[in-house]
Nucleic acid binder design. Structure first.
Length: 883
RNA sequence: GCCCGGGUGGCGGAAUGGGUAGACGCGGACGACUUAAAAUCGUCUGGCCUUAGUGCCGUGCAGGUUCGAGUCCUGCCCCGGGCACCA
């Protein structure tokens, strides 16, 4: 039999399942290793080849660590609440539960066909009542600690879709799906007080073994700013005047504050606006409300605003300064009001120039005729601060403000509280009851889970912006068990993030009926030692999960401050497609379209346009299979328009581009082992890499070579080769030792591409020079192959005479003394250029090396009689002769 | 605009406490086996040179440090990603 993955792989997958080979059992006598993938959302499209990249990496680690004697927890589950199933339900009337179960079954089948060593007895589905019960339980805990509250906040309402969208579904003020406009309108929402944990979320990043860019993104998202809060009394209102509080990072520039700006939504705007200015202000406020978020950001170089007619007193010098409103001041950040220091802030400078407001220089170092100076320098025109450097001036001003009770040092964060409710059906219902008096009571723990009612129509309730659940009267209306009065349930559901905030904790104890997890399991398994997933979750999922984990820590439910000790982001697998452009902008199939080659197109702000007549066109993609490659020129041409030359593009895989590769097809053709190895071989895990069907051939050939080292398949029937017994030749033993050493190092560092390369070298060289392969070398090769290509390894292991799985065989040991005995290759350079090479024993002295180098005829010819000025000997590496 | 990554053969990529640039794989060329093809195996494969030499050039560009630079420093260019009025 030749190497036949289609026969070997299903057989071993069945064996692993039947024997529960990878079942993890809590065992405190063994060290644990918890290796976790970001669990997927089971979409209707099934897996694409990008998914298994991270899963393969964690599987290699899981299998390797088992062979290293670790008790490995390696689970898989489904983040199964979510929008696509609900959108599909709206369109087709199919219940999301049905879609979800179907998709999960497909995902499970695909994942199992990759041969991953998951402990399937721990499989989780976030939509299962047994799971959502505990998600709701956690909500109760958050509520008890005052971390969940309700507030009237603006949400993204999309009239076209008739639904409210989550922030992450809105891109540039338009819906991600369909590109429809989205407006903001206030609705009563559940909020989680993540801001209370801002400082700890920031500080605890320090000790995490995470990629630096991810930590940085989290730091910036939290956005800590040190400064001061300063209170400005509104002028002319006497002793009981209102005060406007501002936050500034530059209290040292207070003498330069020449006006104030409130956000248009600021509560004091209505009160302080003078009669004369009322109309102007009203008009401006209406205008900013109409302006979309997108416009507001796009025109940041233009400043707009309106004068309220009111003045404030600068507390440091009693100067009367005008109060303006402008949409460049954000209501939700700081106090929603600023003191404007046009001399030393670019935005204030631009605003002052636009409205002709005074600019005072209070920090030396710039030229205020040209631009604001935002750097540090000596304070001037600032009375008691004059002459002080910026840092000292800030400190002194803060002390002065505190002494005068006009303000105090303060810290502000960009991080906002987490909007936690969605006007959706397919999510966890809130375990609360709203009483008619507006108070809220919690559903008792023992009554959980609160499950979703059945529904036929999943459309949102358009008119009053309510979730579909609001229509289910017999579910919504309840009797309050405490008062006996009518009350109602919350029609909103939790966002998809809720389930993924704690799934890694359920994995450690998934059957527990008394608690979300047991203390014993948590003490043993947590934290997650290695967490692998896409960088797109850099802030949201990872920040939310860290937040919940810290709350669990405070309640005493977990013993570590952080859930994920080491984080690795796998890159994206890119697909190849071919691009051209056409002028059918409306996607009207009846319209006759003219296609354009990529060369005739330039990309402007509004999108692609033709070079000659500047006509707007649309980018189109042709799948690689629909393209004709011109052999002589190498040009790609469109199948239907052969005169059209296409440009090849490597991009994220998506249906619309026709560049999606289905793992099922790859497995059918080459097998799961080839697919696993190829994904690991194309480059470093963290980097994006293009998928190539040609490249996988090389991997397949390599696996065949491994097969043939053990199996003789030249005849009709395959026979296991009779391998040499005994230790084998020194060359073979040294090669083996070198390979084990390199492969071990590479796997530990997750450099799987170079690990595979070293195994290829071993297989290429092991029978060179006529040495017969020994049983020992073959077994060690198979063991090294086991984490990477487990099906082939199991098969060869059994053909080598073993009856048990190799999953728990010890990882091969290195014979260190063999590495020591190796000869060294020393490069001989003359003036830094390689001229010769010597093979010497490891213990050769520097002096001997120098003598041998000088004796080389090649060196002598390049020196052409000159005396060497200097000889540099780098032990074990090279000799450089300078002459 | 700001902040991260990253530019190495036809392609994916190796090599960074400075020390043989191009491991390994794809693609390509030639050869062996075969009636033939596929598969397999073997050899070669950065560029240049009518001196074919272990000759010269070569890791985005221009400089610098060093006996020696893909690796370190300075200044640019290009590509990818993130953030974007956060006071």
């Amino acid at each position: 039999m030749t190497y036949s993955p289609d026969e070997i792989e299903p057989r071993w997958q069945a064996y692993w399942l039947e024997n529960q080979t990878f079942r993890a059992v809590l065992d405190t006598t063994k060290p644990k290793y918890y290796v976790l993938d970001m669990f997927p959302y089971p979409s209707g499209d099934g897996l694409h080849v990008g998914h298994p990249e991270g899963f393969t990496a964690t599987d290699i680690l899981a299998r390797y660590k088992r062979m290293r004697g670790f008790n490995v927890l390696h689970p898989m589950g489904w983040d199964a609440f979510g929008l696509p199933a609900e959108q599909y339900a709206i369109k087709t009337g199919t219940h999301p539960r049905i879609t979800t179960q179907r998709n999960i079954a497909n995902f499970r089948r695909q994942i199992q066909s990759m041969g991953f060593s998951y402990d399937w007895s721990r499989e989780i589905d976030t939509t299962a009542p047994d799971y959502s019960r505990w998600t709701q339980w956690i909500f109760l805990k958050l509520h008890e600690r005052g971390l969940a509250y309700q507030a009237e906040v603006p949400v993204n309402w999309c009239p076209e879709l008739g639904t409210v969208l989550a922030n992450e579904e809105v891109i540039d003020g338009r819906s991600e799906v369909g590109g429809h406009p989205v407006t903001r309108l206030p609705l009563k929402q559940w909020m989680l007080r993540i801001t209370q944990y801002a400082e700890r979320l920031l500080d605890d990043l320090e000790d995490l073994d995470w990629p630096e860019p991810i930590k940085k993104m989290q730091r910036e998202w939290i956005g800590r700013s040190e400064g001061a809060r300063i209170r400005f009394p509104v002028a002319g209102k006497g002793a009981d005047a209102q005060q406007i509080e501002v936050f500034t990072t530059r209290p040292d520039t207070l003498f330069g504050a020449t006006y104030m700006v409130l956000a248009p939504e600021h509560p004091l705007v209505a009160e302080i606006t003078t009669a004369a200015q009322r109309e102007t202000v009203q008009t401006y406020i209406q205008r900013t409300q109409r302006r979309s978020e997108r416009d507001r950001m796009a025109d940041s170089s233009e400043k707009t605003g309106a004068f309220t007619g009111a003045f404030a007193t600068n507390p440091v010098n009693n100067a009367e300064i005008p109060i303006w409103i402008a949409d460049y001041v954000l209501a939700a950040y700081g106090t929603g009001a600023i003191m404007a220091v046009p001399g030393h802030d670019e935005r204030d400078y631009l605003f002052a120039k636009t409205f002709d407001l005074p600019i005072i220089e209070v920090v030396e170092g710039g030229n205020l005729e040209e631009a604001a100076y935002t750097g540090a320098g000596k304070a001037i025109n600032s009375s008691f601060l004059d002459g002080l450097e910026t840092a000292a001036a800030k400190k002194k001003m803060n002390e002065w403000l505190e002494a005068e009770k006009l303000g105090e040092a303060s810290i502000t964060y960009k991080l906002r509280d987490w909007l936690f409710s969605r006007q959706r059906y397919w999510g966890e219902p809130f375990p609360v009851i709203h009483r008619t008096d507006g108070s809220v009571s919690l559903v008792p723990e023992e009554d959980l889970p609160l499950t979703l009612p059945e529904l036929d129509d999943f459309k949102p309730t358009g008119e009053n912006f309510e979730a579909p659940l609001a229509r289910v009267t017999d579910w919504i209306e309840v009797t309050d068990p405490e008062t006996g009065k009518t009350a109602h349930r919350d029609p909103n559901t939790m966002p998809q993030w809720a389930g993924s905030c704690w799934y890694f904790l359920r994995f450690i104890d998934p059957e527990n009926q008394e608690a979300p997890w047991s203390e014993e399991a948590e003490r043993y398994w947590m934290p997650v030692d290695l967490y692998v997933g896409g960088a797109e979750h850099a802030v949201l999922h990872l920040l939310y999960a860290r937040f919940w984990h810290k709350v669990f820590f405070d309640i005493g439910l977990v013993h570590t401050r952080e859930p994920f000790q080491k984080l690795v982001n796998q890159g994206m697998i890119l697909g190849e497609s071919f691009r051209y452009y056409d002028d059918n902008l409306d996607d009207d199939p009846a319209m006759k379209a003219t296609p354009y080659p990529a060369q005739q197109i330039r990309i402007s702000n509004e999108g692609p346009r033709t070079v000659d007549d500047d006509r707007a066109v649309k980018a189109r993609w042709a799948a690689a299979s629909d393209v004709i490659i011109d052999k002589s020129s190498g040009e790609a041409r469109h199948a239907r328009f052969p005169e059209l030359v296409l440009e090849s593009v490597m991009e994220k895989m998506s249906k619309s581009r026709g560049n999606v590769v289905n793992p099922d097809d790859v497995i059918n053709e080459f097998g799961a082992d080839s697919m696993r190895l190829y994904e690991m071989f194309i480059g470093p895990l963290e980097k994006d890499a293009p998928w190539s069907t040609d490249g996988i051939q090389g991997i397949y050939r390599f696996l065949q070579r491994c097969w043939r080292l053990v199996v003789d398949d030249s005849g009709e029937e395959s026979v296991n080769r009779s391998l040499a017994q005994g230790p084998g030749s020194d060359d073979q033993r040294r090669l083996l030792a070198r390979t084990i050493s390199g492969v071990t190092e590479d796997i530990e560092a997750m450099r799987f591409n170079t690990a595979i390369s070293k195994l290829m070298v071993f297989v290429r060289d092991v029978t060179r020079g006529g040495d017969e392969l020994t049983q020992d070398a073959a077994e060690k090769l198979v063991l090294m192959l086991a984490p990477l290509a487990p099906h082939l390894a199991e098969e060869l292991w059994s053909r080598l005479g073993h009856s048990e799985t190799l999953a728990y065989e010890p990882w091969p040991e290195i014979e260190l003394q063999l590495l020591e005995e190796e000869m060294l290759r020393i490069v001989i350079q003359v003036n830094g250029k390689k001229r010769d090479e010597l093979e010497v024993a490891k213990e050769t002295s520097d002096a001997d090396l120098e003598a041998m180098a000088l004796a080389s005829p090649r060196v002598q010819s390049h020196l052409s009689g000159r005396k060497p000025k200097k000889v540099i000997v780098v032990p074990g590496r090279l000799v450089n002769i300078v002459g």
